[in-house]
Design a protein around this nucleic acid. Structure first.
Lengths: 155, 155
DNA sequence: TATTGTTATACTCTATAACTATA
DNA sequence: TATAGTTATAGAGTATAACAATA
């Protein structure tokens, strides 16, 4: 078997033939998402904020008092796993839980004044992140096109 | 504070105002990728195959004898974490490690005859998966457009 | 000294079951 | 009985450090 040799000859150090999977939708989605999340994490690492934390704060600005399980489902997170996320945001003082008076089983979530101020502080970082993506994509038209296509895969 | 009440009134049971993040590229990428991977996993669960395993087998068909660390890097997986993946494929008899005669540090990876037969068996499932995505996207033109945009985010 | 594969380890994310308090 | 939040736990995926064999 001379596969080793044949491979060595046909391929130089780090060139792999990708033709079989480079156009697989799932593969491309994974790589793109990893790249975008890495950019996000590098931008927000100093703030100790993860994408999900940011999404929760953003959501609450327009959904004050939303049910905890409602927010979790909206973000595709199981309610059991969402508890620790809210715990973290609550410990930092950015989110407050209040027992609903209508149904004492539910916790309604509120972004605090401190949380809003924090978001204000974060918005420029967020904008810069989105603008880096915009530059890579080649403009708003391309971005809107991408969003539209992604929505067809999940909405 | 009547946030609970105000929220309750403005929003019915499970309707959350998403306007703040619905057009965030990273959020849309994550949801789309989760949806696509879920479809993949449901299709392949009976075969006990994960997306990464499939990608490795696909890659090896055109890169017989490739270095283990080369394949890992091509797929964006760290070499330390790639060991267990190759172990699994080797235990199933789909991949073989052979010590390179040129550099005895490197393991060159080969897909076996059994691995090729397995892939043949899997291809219809793969095709159906890609066609379900194609249907969601609305045709090949849309798919190619999406792939092109994703490549701009990472290539 | 540097690199490849490997082991060990830790941390995050995700999935499931079961408990509690309320309804 | 059913539901919201919670706890505990197990499984993936990922990141880092260190080691042996080899270059």
């Amino acid at each position: 078997m001379r596969d080793d040799q044949a491979g060595k000859v046909a391929r130089n150090a780090s060139v792999i033939d990708f033709s079989m999977i480079e156009d697989a939708v799932g593969y491309r989605l994974r790589r793109a998402q990893l790249s975008v999340f890495q950019d996000f994490n590098e931008a927000f690492s100093a703030k100790g904020l993860r994408p999900t934390d940011f999404a929760v704060l953003m959501l609450l600005t327009r959904n004050q008092g939303a049910k905890q399980s409602e927010v979790a489902e909206a973000l595709g997170i199981q309610r059991a796993n969402f508890v620790a996320i809210v715990d973290g945001l609550e410990n930092k003082g950015f989110v407050a839980r209040r027992k609903s008076e209508v149904d004492r089983r539910v916790q309604s979530l509120h972004i605090t004044e401190q949380g809003l101020a924090y978001l204000d502080d974060l918005m420029p970082i967020w904008q810069e992140h989105e603008e880096r993506l915009l530059a890579k994509l080649g403009g708003k038209a391309a971005r809107d096109q991408l969003i539209g296509l992604l929505k067809r895969l999940y909405d």
